[in-house]
Write a protein that binds this DNA or RNA. Structure first.
Length: 859
RNA sequence: GCGCGUAUAGCUCAGUGGUAGAGCGCUUCCUUGACAUGGAAGAGGCCGUAGGUCCGAUUCCUACUAUGCGCACCA
């Protein structure tokens, strides 16, 4: 056994060990275990955006996954963690467009084909930096199975999914109100918009009734849309307008006659209680328009400019039009008043541009059937959530989901497998003039220029990565997967969509998966906490609150970064404020492990087990059981605390101190290597290095998780007494103001199991009989120890007396309180609890007697 | 606006129907060969505010305040 270096330097080992694991195929599913029919443990990495780099959220998420994967690997299950990346169409599209802008080119000038070539080159150049960063964290992914959502096979799966959904009428072509981003010139889904409170001007306009009986005043924050008004609506019960319903008004500027309608969806209390209706550019108005069969006048085009329908305002941007329309209205005396108003505007999540609601021909996913089955499996618990409260969120959200707009008007992404008869697309004559097919059909057809929402392809991730739509061996062995680990932000965006995709697309009899449970992509969804900056702000580069995990790895090592992150989390936590001091503390913990190993090496070989050996063995079994249970329950932070305390307090501070004097180095090594094993999922590197150091064959990464056994032991009590004696002597030094480096005489009327260790740990000499000059100190569990030292002066004794009197007083008042509590409990509380309480009281009383006794002995 | 969380030591967080715990930080002492990235001993909290249930509430309930998040078609 070679000698360990004095210091542990992570950089010396991390990369080398990682390659060694990879080379040995440690990260691949164990084929023997598969043949033996052991339950596989499978995790699909939520594919990060190819444009991204590792941030703290990833670091936590990846650590959680790696802990699970390493834990289950050690449990002997065939374990597979499939990595991959997402093409992130909208994000990449933006990057490329920026490049073009810099070159003074528009994407139209470049052309679609050249644009896509650039994209491909960009993907190649960028590579998946983030995946390499994961390797530095120590993630044990099976890199031979790495996938990209744009690779040929995957793209094929995406198109196949579209075709199959369409065949089941779950995808349809519709002309409906959508969220349009004028900057992206594309539709975006409900989940890709954000709401923001903004202050704006609420303008009240006066529309004259055509019969000359007055006018109706309507309030609006978007005066320019009045050009597309096709009605004025009021609440049927609103007496102010009863007269007007059924009449018509003359729309200013446009000189159009439009009806006054009544509808219960109008809020009487807002503004004037009357609302202008623009079915083409407002979601509520669209609904009203549908109910009341109102004409739809599109005045805003897809570029964000006003259309021909806007008459004299055609060509203006929305912003320009607002000013111009307002000015024109004002000149005609239509504007009654203006006031400041707070309201929510919809913004494009990607670029922050204000979303224009407009009616457009798009591809939609019909959610009605899909959602009911998804809700049902969640309610039945066929897909589990951890922490469990996310189940409710999931169901609630699913219940309110609308049809999903899946087409996007960008070039990058999976092209929609729909083929049009030339000239048919975008007309009122679409029906029957297209074919849905992965391959181009015979004859003259033009492929739909749109691409699919990135999430449409991500939704297929758990099975498309395993070879779907083929009925592959991988699908049979590894699907459904075990756990999906993710943040709550994509619970709806992604998780929900994977669930219904799996449920629906695996219904085909060829997959032999009639049971819902076999079609749901994962057994459990684990939602980890969101990481915030220490002050509670969102972590972001622009706010300067971001922390780079790679810098932490560089400075403290991967093990410390992982452990520190996990140490700060707890199971039911929604957000975690990141404190770098935890990483530092974990680095110290890694050092502690290192030095423990060095101490074990330096202690002379011996094998005469004492109570301490028995105690630490039992403790280690208990800890193994606890950690196992906690890991199975996704309680990673809690497990980290248990391990930290055991290693530092029990093993290092007590057990090893005793081992220096007597005991068994065999037991020490055994307990320590077991501890390394249960620490391995958290800290893969240092545990692997130390495992090898203690001459263990193979890798700790593939070693067998220690068996969980009952820890029957009689050592607890003598060990506890030993600890009390040592602590009491140490406290007594402070009490009497005795220097730590001067020896004291100690007399114990009840001996400890290892007097030599107790003596060494307290720098004391244990003597056979007490002498008259010795001072007496009570032990917490009863009994008295005598302490003698030349340094005990009258002053020291008086100081001790003062401290004891203080303790006596505290104890006395506590006793009064305890008795009062007990009085209240008698006859009302659970007898067992009362008994427990009484025992506590008795102990306090004994303690008081001891203090009184030692006070009298001090005199 | 509706919904879901959180409020405990200076900081980051556990926890319990019976007068509170950890890590870091702080104070004092210790350079005794595993570790100063260490050891020992300590200080420090009317457990957000106000009510309610109970013999008893930091813990359960209600309201409020602060803070985070999600959802939302108030023109």
């Amino acid at each position: 056994m070679s000698e360990l270096p004095k210091q542990y330097d992570p950089k010396t080992y991390e990369q080398e060990l990682y390659s060694a694991w990879e080379k040995a195929g440690v990260f691949k599913p164990n084929q023997t275990a598969i043949k033996e029919g052991k339950q596989p443990f499978v995790i699909m990495l939520p594919p990060p955006n190819i444009t991204g780099s590792l941030h703290m959220g990833h670091a936590l998420q990846d650590t959680v996954m790696d802990i699970l994967v390493r834990f289950h690997r050690m449990l002997g299950q065939p374990t597979m963690w499939v990595p991959g990346i997402d093409h992130a169409a909208i994000a990449t599209n933006r990057v490329l467009e920026k490049q073009l802008t810099a070159e003074g080119l528009s994407r139209q000038e470049l052309g679609r084909e050249a644009f896509l070539e650039r994209a491909e080159k960009w993907y190649e150049d960028t590579g998946a930096i983030i995946l390499d960063q994961m390797k530095r964290l120590g993630c044990s992914c099976d890199w031979t199975r790495q996938r990209f959502t744009m690779d040929t096979e995957y793209s094929r799966a995406v198109q196949e999914a579209f075709v199959r959904y369409h065949a089941k009428s779950l995808i349809y072509r519709g002309n409906r109100m959508v969220n349009w981003c004028p900057r992206c010139e594309s539709v975006v889904s409900d989940l890709e918009i954000q709401h923001e409170q903004r202050s704006t001007r609420l303008v009240t306009l006066r529309y004259p009734l055509t019969d000359g009986s007055g006018a109706i005043e309507v309030a609006t924050t978007r005066p320019e849309t009045m050009l597309g008004d096709t009605a004025v609506a009021v609440h049927p019960a609103d007496t102010r307008y009863t007269q007007a319903v059924g009449k018509t008004v003359r729309l200013p500027l446009m000189d159009r006659v439009i009806p006054v309608i009544a509808d219960e969806r109008i809020d009487q209390s807002f503004g004037t209680g009357a609302v202008k209706v623009t079915p083409a550019h407002d979601p509520l108005d669209a609904q009203l328009g549908e109910t009341h069969k109102l004409p739809i006048i599109n005045i805003i085009g897809e570029s964000g400019a006003l259309t021909e329908q806007a008459g004299q305002f055609a060509g203006l941007s929305v912003g320009e039009a607002r000013k111009a329309v307002l000015k024109a209205l004002d000149e005609q005396g239509v504007v009654v008043s203006e006031e400041d108003h707070q309201h929510a505007v919809s913004l494009c999540e990607r670029c922050g541009t204000v979303i224009e609601p407009l009616i457009s021909r798009q591809w939609f996913m019909d959610m009605s059937k899909l959602k009911s089955e998804t809700i049902s499996v969640a309610e039945q618990g066929l897909v589990k959530f951890a922490p469990p409260r996310w189940k409710k969120h999931f169901i609630e959200w699913m219940k309110s989901v609308h049809d999903w707009t899946i087409s996007r008007q960008i070039w990058l992404g999976h092209r929609i497998p729909v083929w049009w008869k030339p000239g048919a697309r975008g007309t009122n004559n679409e029906e029957g003039n297209y074919v849905v097919s992965v391959e181009k059909p015979e004859g003259e057809w033009e492929q739909d220029p749109d691409v699919l929402d990135t999430w449409f392809s991500s939704a297929l991730w758990p099975f498309a990565t395993l070879g779907w739509p083929q009925q592959s061996e991988n699908m049979k062995t590894f699907y459904p997967t075990s756990v999906l680990v993710t943040g709550r932000d994509i619970l709806y965006l992604w998780v929900a969509r994977m669930v219904f995709s799996g449920l629906e697309l695996l219904k085909d009899p060829v997959y032999e998966r009639p049971a819902q449970k076999d079609r749901i992509p994962f057994d459990t969804v684990f939602i980890h906490p969101t990481i915030l900056a220490k002050g509670g702000q969102r972590m972001s580069k622009s706010l300067g609150t971001g922390v780079d995990p790679l810098e932490l790895i560089e400075q403290f090592g991967a093990d410390a970064t992982r452990f520190g992150l996990i140490y700060q989390t707890s199971f039911d936590q929604q957000a975690m404020k990141f404190d770098e001091s935890a990483i530092k503390a974990s680095r110290n913990f890694v050092t502690k492990l290192w030095n423990i190993a060095r101490l074990i090496d330096s202690v002379e070989e011996k094998d005469v087990p004492t109570v301490a050996d028995e105690w630490i063995r039992a403790r280690s079994l208990t800890v193994t059981a606890e950690v196992t249970v906690l890991l199975e329950a996704y309680k990673f932070g809690e497990a980290a605390h248990v391990l930290h305390e055991f290693v530092w307090k029990d093993f290092a501070d007590w057990y090893l101190e005793i081992l220096k004097v007597e005991g068994s180095t065999v037991v020490a090594r055994q307990v320590f290597t077991h501890t390394l094993q249960i620490l391995h999922p958290f800290m893969p590197y240092v545990t692997e290095v130390l495992w090898k150091h203690f001459n263990q064959s193979d890798f700790i990464a593939t070693s067998e998780w220690p068996a969980v056994e009952a820890a029957g032991s009689m050592a607890e009590e003598p060990m506890q007494y030993f600890q009390q004696v040592v602590e009491t002597i140490r406290s007594a030094r402070v009490l009497f103001n005795i220097k730590p480096n001067s020896t004291v005489d100690i007399y114990l009327d009840k001996p400890v199991f290892s007097p030599a260790a107790a003596a060494k740990m307290t720098n004391a000499t244990l003597i056979e009989t007490s002498t008259s000059t010795m001072r007496h100190i009570p032990l917490p569990a009863g009994g008295v120890i005598a302490i003698g030292s030349e340094e005990i002066t009258e002053e020291g004794v008086r100081g001790a007396e003062a401290k004891l009197i203080k303790e006596q007083q505290v104890l006395k008042s506590s006793l009064v309180g305890q008795e009062k509590v007990l009085d209240g409990m008698r006859g009302k509380a659970d007898p067992a609890v009362i008994a427990e309480k009484e025992a506590l009281l008795t102990r306090s009383q004994e303690r008081l007697r001891e203090i009184n006794k030692s006070l009298s002995l001090l005199k």
